[in-house]
Nucleic acid binder design. Structure first.
Lengths: 339, 339
DNA sequence: TTGTAAGCGTTATCAA
DNA sequence: TTGATAACGCTTACAA
């Protein structure tokens, strides 16, 4: 096992193959105008030496690098990991690598932290998750830094080249319409945090469905959490103490829905017999709690893959789709309203 | 908003400040032998221009870079994310960035994939999670490539400079001893996948506790999963159909424990009244399912932070602790054995 | 089709 | 305490 012997460079390859470095460079970069014999000779030497081009030297000469960043401040761990997997799907087989960076959206230094991150590594591009992606200043910053970016959003935040968008509002409308079809008349809403576009869109979807059915959303039927289990647990208590009690709750994400489920159990309310609960996200937790959660499957992984594609090929970004449909998944946490 | 104007280089700073680039370089690198006046003059120009040193050029000149990789093939999403957070904790304020890379441990190309990853980005160091970390060839590979590494493990896999280790066996022994103290005599085990050192250590911990109490583990009281919810769900069915039925199960991780909980519910077995369940990991899911899971808190985040520290300062790696204690967390999924 | 020379932005060497 | 010059490993002109 050889230890720390200096790695071969393009010069070593050139010398041993008896060609110039430029020729080796051409081999590496698959230049079309190359004699087959020369190419094979050089490739043989490359293989023999185990030569791998130095990415930093390449980056310097090309005045660009092959690093793509993921910027997020997402309270939901599973979301973040699915995003990473989706991005890496797209980057597999390319020379790109994924650099991750959680940020604190509430910090006054948010923007300067992001600036620092992008500048320090001279990132080629970044994918940004909500709610940071909803910040217009962020987009300006990327343009200023000459860094490609794609934003994830629940609405038309940007042009197609810089956006992957999901149809949250519509998907929620369908889900709530389903609840109404089950005979539910008192449908409460456990919303996401104020300032999250996704929270707003999901709330609007619910309101639209209620309005279309001639139902309303009383004050006591509305509560807010911040997308975490604990906040869902807190908010659901208020909701379930209301009189008359709602027969169904649409919760803005699965993790809060799991919290609501806990509350119901503690209060002796049977789900779905006495209360239907619908979540949003379809994180693994949705299928693993009891009863398995009816929810909306958010195609975050596909969105992340598409975003990475746009970042790898910014020139083609505008042609690739930016729109993704969520899918309603019916499991066991919903049932017809008790009569 | 300026767009794509070329970024200032060290030459610009030198020219404007009226010094040589080497002097600017000295300022950047906090060289002690520098006139205060000179330093301040240069710093002013740097601030004015918004100059940020090009990391690729630095990497080339220094013949090293500031990228640390995370290599994992971990079925548990939360574990991976906690690890990332722990590493980033340690890297905060440094010039290091975190590059992530999931691998497929079953692939015949595992080692060559890892080699490719390390070589392609010329990583400075990597942190590797089980079970890949248990592979001796991997350590050899890193040495061959001259890449620093730290392995995470449930046993003494390597020397202290290259390891962060948790005391799984001991922690499980304590947990199972607690079950025995509650009066349980028929304790089953839902083990992790064969070939995982963590699975082995946890199983041994259980066996040691049983032996110490004069209990045994019948064939029917042992099943295996692969650390996923689904596999736990499958394996628990076999365990709970055994006659006589166990009164407690120690499950090798939380996610499988959640699966076991599902089975119990479907079979009408009350937890913890008729069956106690103990998990391992203390992932968020443990607190969010019903009943909240008694489990062992694995200090993965602290371990990751320590690992990143070792990678950032390999020269001090051996002096920093490599040993971490797990902690038993009693929640509501355990109760005295029914008499 | 291949080679030469120059340059990318930084740090190291060594002299002043 | 500073600066000139030569690396670092690669690519892009531009020639040959």
């Amino acid at each position: 096992m050889a230890v720390k012997e200096p790695k071969p460079t393009i010069n070593d390859v050139a010398r041993i193959a008896g060609v110039s470095k430029k020729t080796v460079s051409r081999v590496i970069n698959n230049s079309p105008l190359l004699n087959t014999a020369t190419r094979e000779k050089v490739e043989a030497v490359i293989a023999e030496l185990g030569y791998v081009p130095n990415p930093q030297a390449r980056a310097l000469a090309l005045r660009r690098n092959f690093l793509i960043g993921l910027i997020h401040d997402n309270p939901n761990a599973q979301t973040v990991l699915s995003v990473q997997e989706g991005m890496l799907d797209a980057m597999k087989g390319t020379e790109f690598a994924l650099v991750v960076r959680p940020v604190d959206r509430k910090s006054p230094r948010l923007l300067s932290d992001i600036r620092h991150f992008i500048e320090q590594q001279r990132l080629y591009g970044v994918y940004v998750l909500p709610p940071v992606s909803e910040n217009e200043d962020f987009a300006c910053l990327c343009k200023e830094l000459g860094c490609h970016y794609v934003r994830m959003g629940s609405a038309r935040l940007d042009d197609e080249a810089h956006l992957v968008e999901s149809n949250d509002r519509e998907a929620v409308r369908d889900a709530v319409t389903y609840l109404i079809g089950l005979g539910h008349q008192r449908i409460a809403h456990l919303a996401g945090p104020a300032g999250f576009r996704s929270a707003y869109e999901r709330e609007q979807g619910l309101r639209e469905a209620l309005t279309a059915a001639g139902l309303d959303l009383p004050e006591a039927g509305f509560a807010r959490g911040n997308y975490t289990f604990e906040s869902g647990y807190q908010a659901a208590q208020a909701l379930l103490r209301a009189e008359p009690r709602p027969t169904a709750i649409f919760v803005a994400n699965d993790e809060m829905a799991a919290g609501a489920l806990h509350v119901a159990r503690e209060m002796g309310i049977d789900v779905p017999q006495d209360l239907s609960i619908v979540g949003f996200d379809d994180t693994p937790i949705a299928a693993h709690i009891w009863p398995p959660l009816t929810t909306v499957r958010w195609p975050i992984r596909a969105m992340a893959k598409a975003a990475a594609h746009k970042l790898i090929r910014p020139d083609q970004a505008a042609e690739q789709t930016a729109f993704f449909r969520s899918e309603f998944v019916i499991r066991a946490s919903t049932a017809p309203a008790a009569s």
